[in-house]
Measured scan of single mutants.
Amino acid sequence: MATVKFKYKGEEKEVDISKIKKVWRVGKMISFTWDEGGGKTGRGAVSEKDAPKELLQMLEKQ
């Protein structure tokens, strides 16, 4: 499965696309949330040019 790689608060992170729940556009950035388990929700953002095609497809479906 595809993953999204991004930096959050200076830390490199990687999230499996299948865990992503919500995707939206903020200017030229793609923001998203995912389920971290245990009732926690993670947040992240990646530039439109660095976003994997699967993430962009999720954005178009909404």
Results as ranks from 00 to 15, higher is better:
23 V>L: 12
7 K>P: 12
36 E>N: 05
16 D>M: 08
35 D>R: 03
12 E>P: 07
7 K>E: 12
22 K>N: 14
42 G>W: 09
53 K>M: 11
21 K>P: 04
14 E>D: 09
39 G>Y: 15
45 A>P: 01
41 T>Y: 09
24 W>P: 00
30 I>H: 01
47 S>E: 14
52 P>V: 09
43 R>H: 08
54 E>D: 06
12 E>N: 08
50 D>F: 04
52 P>M: 02
59 L>M: 09
9 K>S: 10
29 M>N: 14
10 G>D: 09
54 E>T: 11
27 G>S: 05
15 V>L: 03
27 G>V: 03
44 G>C: 13
21 K>V: 14
25 R>P: 08
21 K>C: 12
53 K>D: 05
20 I>W: 01
5 K>L: 03
16 D>N: 12
11 E>Y: 08
38 G>H: 12
54 E>R: 11
56 L>P: 01
8 Y>K: 02
9 K>C: 15
50 D>H: 10
37 G>Y: 08
30 I>K: 00
52 P>C: 09
54 E>F: 11
20 I>P: 00
53 K>G: 11
32 F>E: 00
41 T>I: 11
49 K>D: 11
33 T>H: 12
25 R>W: 05
19 K>H: 04
26 V>N: 13
35 D>S: 11
48 E>R: 04
52 P>T: 06
26 V>E: 11
31 S>C: 08
54 E>Y: 06
6 F>E: 00
43 R>D: 15
39 G>N: 08
46 V>M: 12
55 L>I: 03
9 K>Y: 09
13 K>P: 00
38 G>D: 10
50 D>R: 10
60 E>Y: 04
60 E>N: 08
32 F>T: 01
58 M>K: 04
41 T>D: 14
20 I>A: 01
48 E>A: 05
12 E>R: 04
12 E>D: 10
49 K>L: 08
26 V>P: 09
13 K>M: 11
43 R>L: 08
57 Q>P: 01
55 L>Q: 01
41 T>F: 14
46 V>W: 01
11 E>D: 03
60 E>P: 07
4 V>E: 00
39 G>F: 09
17 I>D: 01
2 A>N: 10
16 D>R: 06
38 G>P: 06
21 K>W: 13
33 T>N: 14
19 K>D: 14
24 W>I: 07
42 G>H: 05
43 R>K: 10
10 G>C: 07
11 E>A: 07
15 V>R: 01
39 G>E: 09
42 G>P: 06
30 I>N: 00
47 S>G: 13
14 E>P: 00
45 A>E: 15
48 E>S: 04
9 K>V: 02
51 A>V: 07
40 K>W: 07
3 T>D: 01
27 G>E: 14
50 D>Q: 15
58 M>N: 03
47 S>M: 13
20 I>E: 00
30 I>D: 00
37 G>T: 14
12 E>Q: 04
25 R>V: 11
62 Q>T: 10
46 V>G: 01
51 A>M: 04
32 F>Q: 00
36 E>C: 10
47 S>W: 03
13 K>F: 10
57 Q>S: 12
1 M>T: 09
52 P>L: 08
54 E>V: 13
38 G>R: 09
16 D>H: 14
30 I>R: 00
28 K>W: 03
37 G>P: 11
11 E>R: 09
30 I>M: 04
41 T>M: 12
17 I>M: 05
43 R>N: 15
35 D>I: 12
19 K>G: 14
12 E>S: 13
17 I>P: 02
1 M>D: 08
3 T>Y: 05
21 K>Y: 08
8 Y>Q: 06
22 K>H: 14
5 K>V: 06
1 M>H: 15
53 K>R: 06
35 D>W: 07
8 Y>I: 03
17 I>Q: 04
50 D>A: 13
42 G>Y: 12
22 K>M: 09
